[in-house]
């Protein structure tokens, strides 16, 4: 294992060339580099088996990398002391069933070296914030999955962390609870806490994340702000009232295509758009609307998966289609 510090940066997370192979054959991460700014909400997404959870576990010192450079909160990867400043909610977490909700929070906070008085205050504060106050004295073996998830979130926040790492935080939570969690994440961001999210719920990531990285096959396929990722995939959809079949050749000449009675122009090129509109108008086609469309995260993920596997759109799961945001 080769752990080295590169340089002290202002990134909350600055990982460079993180590699991990399980056994001799299963390569989970093949040289991942990602940067997460302080105080931002960062989303990590990718298909199953992409290495997301392994990457998170390496950040949290739960898994040892084969090699890794960089820092987490300014400290080298694997540094235990920094963990006191990070909150972590793992996927499918399990807490001891013999403890009550309040005892769970107190126990894990004590392990995070939170002083006793602060623990007592924070138990009350975070149980209230996740709506679990009335269940504080109930043994958690009686909790539902959604309640466990909310308790897990409170556990991750008990040490008032500088950064919180959440692996599938809304798993098993009802829509109202999910909304409440999203609001909490935004509150944390406003308070200056860095939020690192690993989730399959792409629509939710889209609603809260400042930046995302897409992991495919143990490598970063895309990384950037949502705007950066979605801008280059902009396209225009021109809805027409009449038949455009006669104009197909001219439309294709300008880079457009006909799809379900609409004309689609890929890319962000106002000149071409106007030229296309001129062609349609000259052909006496009635234009209903012109809509710019940005791809959703889901589209980008599917595209990234296709590019990585070389299978293109065929790699997309059934039911995933491009849709406007």
């Amino acid at each position: 294992m080769d752990l080295a510090v590169t340089e002290m940066t202002n990134w909350a997370v600055d990982l460079i060339d993180v590699r991990k192979t399980y056994g001799r054959r299963i390569q989970a991460l093949g040289g991942v580099s990602i940067q997460v700014g302080r105080g931002e909400i960062f989303g990590l997404l990718g298909p199953n088996g992409a290495g997301k959870t392994t990457l998170v576990k390496i950040m949290m010192s739960v898994v040892r990398p084969d090699s890794a450079y960089g820092t987490v909160l300014g400290r080298p990867i694997g540094h235990r002391g920094k963990l006191a400043r990070i909150g972590y909610l793992p996927e499918s977490h399990r807490f001891p069933g013999y403890l009550t909700g309040a005892q769970v929070l107190d126990f894990y906070a004590a392990l995070a070296k939170v002083p006793r008085q602060k623990r007592a205050a924070n138990v009350e504060k975070w149980l209230h914030r996740v709506g679990m106050t009335q269940w504080a004295s109930t043994r958690i073996r009686k909790y539902s999955k959604g309640m466990m998830q909310r308790l897990g979130l409170a556990q991750a926040l008990m040490n008032d962390p500088e950064m919180v790492v959440l692996d599938e935080p809304t798993d098993g939570v009802d829509p109202v609870g999910r909304r409440s969690i999203r609001e909490l994440l935004i509150e944390l961001k406003r308070a200056g806490t860095t939020v690192f999210l690993n989730s399959h719920m792409l629509s939710e990531l889209e609603m809260v994340c400042d930046r995302v990285a897409i992991l495919v096959g143990g490598m970063v396929a895309r990384q950037g702000t949502l705007k950066e990722l979605t801008d280059h995939t902009l396209e225009y959809q021109i809805r027409c009232g009449g038949d455009v079949a006669a104009l197909t050749e001219k439309i294709q000449g300008l880079g457009g295509r006909c799809e379900d009675g609409a004309v689609i122009l890929a890319g962000h090129d106002p000149q071409k758009l106007n030229a296309l509109i001129d062609v349609l108008r000259a052909g006496n086609v009635l234009i209903d609307s012109v809509e710019p469309r940005r791809f959703s995260l889901e589209d980008i993920l599917v595209e990234a998966m296709g590019a990585e596997t070389g299978a293109g759109a065929a790699a997309a799961p059934i039911g995933i289609a491009r849709h406007a945001t």
Binding site: V62, R80, L83, Y88, P90, S92, H93, P96, Y108, L111
Partner: peptide, 18 residues
């Protein structure tokens, strides 16, 4: 063994304790 169960050990191993 209870401490080492999947889902439980991750939380403990991510605390600032060797």
């Amino acid at each position: 063994p209870g401490m080492l169960q999947s889902g439980s050990v991750e939380v403990l191993a991510a605390k600032p304790i060797s």
